[in-house]
Design a protein around this nucleic acid. Structure first.
Lengths: 109, 109
DNA sequence: ATCGTTCATCGCCGATTGGCGATTGAAAGA
DNA sequence: TCTTTCAATCGCCAATCGGCGATGAACGAT
């Protein structure tokens, strides 16, 4: 249905000059950090609580400890979360500034 | 500075029951779709205009036509954009619903 | 019917991801 | 000291990504 809607869209042809935005890189990096179900869950978990020990996060996910640690490293590298050593344990918490940056970048789309 | 802030965070230990959210998958897929600089630029480009022929998008990016086509396919699979065949050309445009879904998912973080 | 244009797809490649178990390292307790 | 515990890292693997050129299909125009 609606087949053959010839020329339905104007397909405007304003000469596009590549917006060489460096923000695209930043954007992509941040988006990539949460582009995995496990990382989405980790971020959500950390948003819901003050802070969380790594071991607890491992218990929350159906993944091996080493795998979770990898995801945590990725998130930490992106700046979205930060880890603080607390004795033998490590407390992770979200970085509100980075989270806000992500939100505003997406909202500005 | 601020070193040795022992026990600075409470590290609350509320028993976490894994929120097996299926939305994490959806979220991750959408995030992954824009987790590449080229795809960010494409999405931004399409938001700025009504619609855009594939060839123009190729001209806007320093990538080969086949590579751009790949990115377009990824974006199309995610639902963020949709393509409409217009003769020999293909007009791409943003899918406002999906874009809004992405925005609200991020905003709800 | 034969071009020329446009875009999708295929095959290939190197690099990266994502998963795991095993090992290492650091702190705290015995 | 020795042990235990917790988390990061290493090594390995299969799978995927991201890039490209080349090929193919669809369409308009000649």
């Amino acid at each position: 249905m609606m087949a053959k809607a010839k020329k339905s869209k104007p397909c405007d042809s304003t000469p596009v000059k590549l917006i060489a935005d460096p923000t695209a890189e930043v954007f992509a990096k941040l988006a990539w950090a949460i582009a995995h179900p496990a990382r989405v869950q980790i971020v959500r978990l950390l948003i819901g609580r003050e802070a969380c020990v790594c071991g607890e996060i491992v218990d929350c996910l159906p993944l091996a400890q080493s795998t979770v640690s990898q995801h945590l490293k990725i998130l930490k590298d992106s700046g979205l979360i930060q880890g603080e050593v607390d004795g033998p344990k490590v407390c992770y918490c979200i970085n509100p500034e980075k989270l806000e940056q992500l939100k505003s970048l997406v909202a500005a789309l």
